[in-house]
Amino acid sequence: MELIALYGLNLVYTIAVLALVVLGLAVVFGLLGVMNMAHGEFIMLGAYSALIIQQAGLPYILALPMAVLVCGTVGFLVEYAVIRHLYRRPFDTLLATWGLAILIRKAVEGAFGRDYKSIEQRLPGTVSVLGVDYPAYRLALLVVIVALFAGLLIWYRRSNTGARIKAMVQNPALASAVGIDTAFLSRATFIFGVSVAGLAGVLLAPLVRVEPYMGLDYLLSSFFILVVGGLGSLEGLLVGSTVIGGTDVVVSAISDKTAGYLSILIISILFLWLRPNGLYAKR
């Protein structure tokens, strides 16, 4: 019984973390059509922001605004210098952001070195849930993620800005004709997406290895989730996270990590073959 509860908690936790990781890419790729190959690198920048805060001896909570500052600034510069010219040219954005990913990786490697960094846990200890002692930080993270998604969902459905974004996604020409500043809105959406990635980096930093190449795994799992779930809806994002996270956890438990990775890769290829628009296609 306790074992099942533990597996259940682990599964929920894995899915929630994946949903958090994919959110930034889902915004940028799903809404703007920009396949941001540097998505994982923005998560990495978030984690290094936490490292900077830790090294400076400041309260850990400041890592969150720090990550938004770092990723937002980089995101703004990138949007201004590169992405702005490439909307509706998905292939070129793929290449340019991929170059950007390499650039960020190598710059961080040059500045911080290639070795693993560790970020201290701020919520040590465990909490008893369903008869299982579960790490407190993981539980707190779970709560934060659920709150974040709920808030975002309500805001996107109710707010004016959400409606404007939907209009821009549906028909950019018409949207700008009725007075929506699509250039500004696209930029804001892009910056929002990469900042969310940065926040994910801060939240995950204490739990994972922090190093310049950490982003690639996040990019690929985010991509797999979007392939399975489809673009443009939160439901798809959650279903995709469940399928990918669930498969990974189950197969990795039975066999090993490589088998888990292989199985989600095969699932993604099968989806591209049989259901190229994913389970919840809105476009």
């Binding site: 070129d92 340019a96 170059g99």
Partner: peptide
């Protein structure tokens, strides 16, 4: 390698 990546982005653009 940062320089190489920068050159690559410029080539793409």
């Amino acid at each position: 390698e940062v320089v190489v990546a920068l050159v690559f982005i410029i080539v793409v653009l």
